[in-house]
Design a protein around this nucleic acid. Structure first.
Lengths: 221, 221
DNA sequence: ACCTGAACACCGTTCAAGT
DNA sequence: ACCTGAACACCGTTCAAGT
């Protein structure tokens, strides 16, 4: 288990290895349990070793972000109508983060990575929207609006479900308490997590609204 | 400047005083410059003093959240039609966070506070939506969907504008690069921050989509 | 009740030393 | 080139001592 000092015969670390181990560590112990010491222990390495491969903790988290982002597919924009592609892209985007709940809060603070892979994804979305008839100055706002909704929804997935216990609070906010109860009953009936209902109604509404906006843009032209 | 040991004649701290000082400190030095040591220096106090008034750093941040959230108004739901009230609520909600950009990332990780004031706000929104004809099991999803969009948009405000420089990247993602240029030109013409365009188009679309969803719910009943 | 000051365990980062 | 190990400044938190 213990390694001798000096350069090892075969390298034990790499940027990739570090990022993958960091992702599973965060998944296992949560955002607040993540530290270079804990990560080093998992990899059988001293924390100072990381600095041969990354510039520091922030760089490790950037690697984690790339790992998660890379699993998001945007190729549907090359074949499907823009509105259908948008719905599928949004679900995949949200699922990628929902698969790693504790990661969401760590990465939410730096939503857009300048990584080339991410820019390529944006490029595909932009191309699909323009092909769908959106005027070019509207394309980025439309994409960012949907992305903001997705990221906000991902945060909601990880939010502590404070709303569930009744008790003294219910008396103070009766309309809210009974609406939560109705929502929970409805979600349980459908066999889905309560947070999914908000995501689906929000996504469907935003896309329907965008469809209408595009129609009126086209009719006034 | 230096205080003698022992209990002071008149208390220098309180939960409120601590939260206000924390908010302005974060505004001044950013999220990463915030520490109990720095906060103590501002208040002329040792970090250990805080523990007489709050349970720790997280509790201080909860106080900051309450401060920001308390400035959000939801009374419009008692007088205006639900869709118009929703639009105003959303703008005020976003503005409250946009007024403190560095705070957003610190607080985004715990989007929903269980504070009574926050629950009261939700209660007003819920009441307004039900008055507008929304079925009770849909009310929470609708509110959460809009709130998710708002929080995601607030994060976007604070996101580093990586997208602006041309150079080698533009060649790799041409559609994206030219769409950003078109967006920037359009924003500059309107004299608004580029991020505002996405918020406005997203908000208008979501509300328009929700109007449509409510209409079809009502027609099938 | 409410502050100081010493002490604690832990943190990210730097850097010389070793192979 | 790539690891260890010692050292650094800083962090949040605990707690006895003081008024």
């Amino acid at each position: 288990m213990q390694r001798r000092v000096g350069r090892p015969a075969v390298p034990v670390l790499s940027r990739e290895v570090i990022a993958r181990a960091a992702l599973t560590l965060i998944d296992d112990v949560g955002a607040e349990g993540f530290s270079l010491a804990a990560l080093g222990k998992r990899l059988g390495v001293r924390p100072s070793s990381f600095y041969n491969h990354v510039t520091g903790k922030d760089d490790i988290l950037a690697g984690v972000r790339e790992l998660v982002s890379d699993s998001i597919d945007a190729r549907m924009f090359t074949e499907l109508p823009w509105d259908e592609a948008m719905a599928r892209w949004a679900r995949g985007y949200r699922d990628a983060f929902a698969a790693h709940p504790p990661v969401i809060s760590l990465l939410a603070t730096t939503p857009v990575s300048g990584a080339l892979r991410t820019l390529r994804m944006y490029d595909q979305v932009v191309t699909g929207l323009e092909r769908g008839g959106w005027p070019s100055e509207m394309v980025i706002p439309v994409m960012v609006a949907v992305e903001s909704f997705i990221l906000g929804s991902a945060l909601d997935v990880v939010a502590p479900p404070t709303m569930f216990d009744p008790g003294p609070l219910s008396a103070d906010v009766p309309a809210f308490a009974s609406a939560v109860a109705a929502r929970d009953a409805s979600a349980a009936e459908g066999g889905r997590p309560p947070a999914d209902l908000a995501f689906e109604v929000g996504l469907a509404s935003m896309i329907e609204g965008l469809r209408g906006a595009l129609r009126s843009l086209e009719s006034t032209r």
